[in-house]
């Protein structure tokens, strides 16, 4: 394995049970009042837990996805030969939503799949082995198609590098594009997104957390400080 710079925090902080708990206890749901969201001084966070503010509400996520769906149609000339591959966990429901919008806008049926990148990550040896998520390639495969990778947060770019490697083993797409709900900056690799829901300037120590109806019961993007361990 290559020599690595000190590893950044996990790109999207997924699977962190405490983070979800905070979101609920902090009352920072998707419909936080404007003052609350901009002031960044919501409620009283429990000791040892950082507070989080909502930076994208449910309707903003909806609009961003609709715009991305239109952009995909525009850039791929009607969604012909497009395959959407979501990166688990939250990229998968996002890919499904994009596909549903694309078909409702223009009637094009876009195949959706999922691509687990765990086995291709460059930080495997820094943590205990992780459980694998599903990889599901649409029946027609990806050879010659335009694959749009879909993820919730773009951070260091390492997940996408792993995804490109994983894709390489599955076939040879004509082109690969990237759609993310949030681009929070701090790239460590020469990777950029083709479709961005929201560019979110963040500090390196901050945590961006995407909540989705399908996985978390609500739609919202939260920004907070990293919890000291």
């Amino acid at each position: 394995m290559c020599a690595m710079t000190p590893r950044p925090r996990h790109e999207q902080g997924t699977g962190n049970g405490t983070a979800q708990g905070q979101a609920a206890s902090g009352g920072s749901t998707g419909v936080a009042p404007p003052g609350q969201a901009s002031g960044g001084s919501t409620g009283v966070a429990p000791p040892g837990q950082a507070e989080r503010k909502a930076v994208l509400a449910a309707e903003e996520i909806r609009r961003a996805l609709s715009r991305i769906a239109h952009e995909i149609l525009e850039r791929t000339h009607g969604g012909d030969q497009v395959v959407l591959l979501g990166i688990p966990t939250r990229g998968v429901p996002l890919a499904r939503r994009l596909a549903a919008r694309i078909s409702s806008f223009e009637g094009a049926i876009v195949p959706v799949g999922s691509l687990d990148v765990t086995l291709h990550r460059d930080d495997l040896r820094l943590r205990p082995a992780r459980a694998l998520r599903r990889t599901e390639v649409p029946p027609d495969g990806i050879d010659g198609k335009t694959v749009v990778l879909v993820d919730d947060v773009l951070f260091s770019g390492r997940t996408i590098r792993a995804a490109l490697d994983a894709l390489n083993d599955l076939g040879r797409p004509r082109a690969v594009q990237l759609a993310v709900l949030v681009d929070r900056g701090h790239r460590e690799l020469p990777i950029r997104a083709d479709y961005v829901g929201k560019n979110l300037p963040t500090a390196h120590r901050e945590v961006v957390r995407v909540l989705l109806e399908e996985t978390d019961g609500e739609d919202s993007v939260l920004l907070g400080e990293q919890v000291a361990e």
Binding site: L124, R125, R127, P128, A129
Partner: peptide, 8 residues
């Protein structure tokens, strides 16, 4: 057993 660091 070998993929990560420490016990999973």
């Amino acid at each position: 057993m070998l993929g990560g660091a420490g016990e999973s």
